[in-house]
Write a protein that binds this DNA or RNA. Structure first.
Length: 428
RNA sequence: GCCCCGAUAGUGUAGCGGCCUAUCAUACGGGCCUGUCGAGCCCGUGACACGGGUUCAAAUCCCGUUCGGGGCGCCA
């Protein structure tokens, strides 16, 4: 007897013997019959038991969400409306579920995100929740494929570091034997060093840590960053790589489009490339035409981004950011050093990627450190790599959870994180 | 770091000074009915976060504690 998933049942012939592993979602009993709504990772099926011919275990009161194994025969002409119907010959309880459940898996009551995260193992059994991570996985797979096809090497850089990436104070300190160390906020410096090493094109998918006490629906203290760096390239090359990577990811998701539509009611649209580009200055002018005076030297506020985002239906780039708003490693615009060869990828008011051409000249880089009030000596391990033929290069960092949020229209980034780390949560 | 807001049964809620020995739904337990189909009907168990205070009277008002939600800043 072969193991099947519920999804595989529909093509079978009458009376095919099958083995299924999954959970009891619900039982309904009648005088002559017992119906068990059975669920596995692919969908729902119904087990129909005739009391008069049943000699297996007592199934009337198997608690919901208990894990079971079922062997039986497939009924082509079943009357079930909750998926394919199986006539079991044997049911084995693999592990009984406690009762009552701390969280409704199939009830018509919705739990708070707090309750859901505390009981994530049950929450994820819900189809509309589980599918989010299927989508996230597909997105990443599509992006990985694109990077690989374009000659990128996947790398893994340290998450425990001795100095902060950008000199900020928003880092988690950790004990490292007798030294102080930090959880890295970004692989930036390491991927640049690798560019100098002749790898040519690198990408990394890994955690990034930010010790900011933010409390919003779009921030996490640990998130998954997709970072790339490409040699002999500028910001325009990086933007082309980015828009096509995002498109490749969404293309991968669209293969399971119907399921996403059914589970979440969301239409997955593959975006057209190239994405529109708008400069920072054009945004400022646009805001003033809308009666909003943007303050010099400041980033756009959420309100401002909402206004700017209304101009576009989907993804767009904001380019040529002022140097004061960008980190030291960002290449200044050769025509006006007050601006930079940089970009953000936006989706309406949401920022999902930040990127730029980087400074490759060691002298310029030293000066940029000083201009930002940083001590170049603290970064000597990084600066060394620039002294022996560092190629011009560019790259970006993309927040995977934010991309998932956008593709699925989620309201809270915690929905797109299996076990989120936020201002208050470090468990589970 | 700044500013708002919330905490009632397993879950989600009603209540906003006496009508609350606290509402409803769902879950859970029991019964009836039923090839069922978010089934239906009947009965039952189950809660005011904690500590002070105000008041004749507090789930309801005030203060503190704890836990949480959201906005801003910053960013992915």
């Amino acid at each position: 007897m072969r193991l099947f998933s519920v999804k595989e049942l529909s093509d079978l012939k009458e009376d095919t013997e099958v083995l299924l592993h999954g959970w009891v979602q619900e039982t309904r009993t009648t005088k002559n019959l017992i119906f068990v709504v059975f669920r596995d990772h692919t969908g729902l099926a119904q087990l129909t038991i005739r009391r008069d011919s049943w000699n297996g275990i007592e199934v009337d009161n198997i608690p919901r969400e208990s894990a079971i194994s079922v062997s039986g025969t497939f009924m082509v002409h079943g009357k079930s409306k909750t998926g394919p119907e199986i006539s079991p010959s044997k049911i084995t309880i693999l592990n009984i579920a406690g009762s009552p459940l701390p969280l409704a898996v199939s009830d018509p009551v919705n739990s708070d995100i707090e309750t859901r995260l505390n009981n994530r193992f049950l929450d994820l059994r819900k189809r509309e929740v589980g599918i989010i991570f299927r989508v996230e996985s597909d997105l990443l797979w599509g992006i990985r494929k694109h990077m690989s096809q374009n000659g990128f090497t996947e790398v893994h850089t340290p998450k425990i570091v001795g100095t902060s990436t950008e000199g900020g104070s928003d880092l988690f300190a950790v004990r490292y034997f007798e030294k102080e160390a930090f959880l890295n906020q970004s692989p930036q410096l390491y991927k640049e060093i690798l560019v100098s090493s002749g790898v040519n094109r690198v990408f990394e998918v890994g955690p990034a840590f930010r010790a900011e006490k933010h409390n919003t629906v779009r921030h996490l203290n640990e998130f998954t960053s997709i970072d790339i760096e490409m040699a002999f390239s500028d910001h325009n090359d990086a933007m082309v790589m980015l828009e096509n990577a995002v498109r490749s990811g969404i293309l991968e998701v669209s293969a399971g489009e119907r399921e996403v539509k059914e589970a979440l009611g969301v239409e997955v649209k593959v975006p057209e490339v190239p994405f529109p580009r708008i400069t920072f200055e054009e945004c400022v002018d646009y805001l003033s035409s809308k009666g909003m005076a943007h303050r010099d030297g400041e980033d756009f506020s959420p309100d401002e981004l909402r206004i700017i985002g209304e101009r576009f239906t989907g993804f767009y780039f904001i380019t040529r950011w002022p140097a004061s708003l960008r980190p030291f490693y960002t290449m200044p615009d050769p025509d006006d050093s007050n601006y930079t060869n940089s970009f953000d990828l936006q989706f309406r008011e949401n920022e999902i990627t930040s990127g730029a051409q980087r400074v490759h000249d060691p002298e310029m880089l030293r000066n940029r450190f000083l201009a930002k009030g940083l001590n170049p000596d603290d970064f000597s391990f990084y600066l060394e790599a620039f002294r022996y033929g560092m190629p011009p290069h560019a790259g970006w960092g993309l927040g995977l959870e934010r991309l998932t949020m956008i593709v699925l229209g989620l309201k809270n980034i915690r929905e797109a994180t299996v076990f989120p780390r936020d201002r208050n949560r470090i468990s589970p």
